[in-house]
Design a protein around this nucleic acid. Structure first.
Length: 120
DNA sequence: GAGTCGAGTCGTCAGGATCG
DNA sequence: CGATCCTGACGACTCGACTC
């Protein structure tokens, strides 16, 4: 499958935050970062003071919409990246806990053997 | 090879959360 | 309170596996 190579292995603390609100489930893996950086190639629109004709207003509206779509596109990508990372994090935690659980069960069996009265 | 299916990805919209 | 951010949901698209 031709997939975008956006895998990262950075160790980020994924802090569940607000929003157990609506449907409750799905904890969020949201990291509020100061992302004021615009996607490459984005040029800020002309200052609002310089608008005149309806055509210019329409162009401004179009520019705003395109900028919003572009930002949202990037936001969606980032959101999906974080979600993948969160899931990966959960999966590795599951793996660790499974090993831990297995060890505890083994330990329990050993202790049972030691403590159980011999019936010979 | 053509058709179908399931899984994955992407862009967009809607609406709640947050910020200034 | 308007602007912006974040994310679930949806539809469109692609790709590989499978069947005929």
């Amino acid at each position: 499958m031709a997939v975008t190579g956006d895998e990262t292995d950075e160790e980020t603390e994924l802090a569940p935050s607000h929003m157990a609100a609506a449907t409750g489930d799905m904890p969020t893996y949201q990291i509020r970062a100061p992302t004021t950086a615009l996607p490459q190639g984005v040029v800020m629109a002309a200052s609002p003071g310089s608008l005149h004709s309806p055509q210019q207003l329409a162009e401004e509206a179009t520019r705003k919409r395109e900028l919003r779509l572009m930002k949202n596109r990037e936001a969606a990508k980032e959101c999906r990246r974080r979600k993948k990372e969160y899931v990966k994090c959960l999966e590795s935690r599951v793996a660790v806990l499974e090993v831990q659980n297995k060890k505890l069960i083994e330990e329990l069996e050993t202790l049972k053997d030691i403590c159980s009265p011999k019936t010979d």
